[in-house]
Simulated scan of single mutants.
Amino acid sequence: MNDEPAELTEEPRGCLFALSQPPLMLFLAFVGTLIFLTGLHDLYRW
């Protein structure tokens, strides 16, 4: 009855595994920095 390949029967990797990937963290840090800078620019228009 269990005809699935061995890879699919492993536990699924969760969100913490995805967040441990350096490219994703660099991308999220870049996007977060842009959002922070635009928010700061809206608050204090130099």
Rank of each mutant, 00 (worst) to 15 (best):
N2V: 10
F36D: 00
A6L: 15
L26Q: 10
A29Y: 07
F17M: 07
L16C: 00
E4K: 08
M25W: 14
F30M: 00
I35N: 05
L34G: 06
D3Q: 12
T33H: 04
R13S: 06
E4T: 04
E4V: 03
L24T: 09
R45D: 03
Y44L: 05
G14F: 14
T33V: 10
Y44A: 04
W46Y: 12
D42I: 01
D3S: 09
T9H: 04
C15R: 04
H41E: 12
A6Q: 14
P23Q: 14
A18F: 11
E10Q: 07
P22Y: 09
P22L: 07
P12I: 15
G32V: 09
M25G: 07
E7P: 04
L34E: 01
T9R: 10
L26V: 04
R45M: 01
Q21M: 14
I35S: 02
M25V: 12
E7D: 13
D3I: 09
D3T: 11
E10K: 00
T38P: 03
F27I: 00
G14Q: 11
E4R: 05
P12A: 15
L24H: 08
M25A: 14
E4C: 05
L26N: 10
G39R: 02
V31F: 02
T38C: 09
E10N: 03
P5C: 14
F17Q: 08
R13F: 01
T33G: 08
V31T: 07
L34I: 06
Q21N: 12
F27P: 00
N2Y: 08
N2K: 07
E11S: 08
L8Y: 11
R13D: 05
L16E: 01
L43P: 00
P23Y: 14
H41W: 11
T38L: 12
L16P: 00
S20I: 05
C15D: 03
E4N: 11
T33M: 08
M1K: 13
E10M: 02
E11F: 01
L37S: 04
M1F: 12
W46P: 10
D42Y: 07
G32F: 08
W46H: 14
G14M: 11
G39L: 07
V31H: 03
Q21E: 14
L28K: 13
F36L: 06
P23A: 14
Q21C: 13
L34C: 05
Y44V: 06
M25L: 15
W46I: 04
P23C: 09
E11K: 11
L43I: 00
T9F: 02
C15I: 09
G39W: 11
F17C: 03
A29M: 08
G32K: 06
I35E: 02
G32R: 05
P22V: 10
L43W: 06
P22D: 11
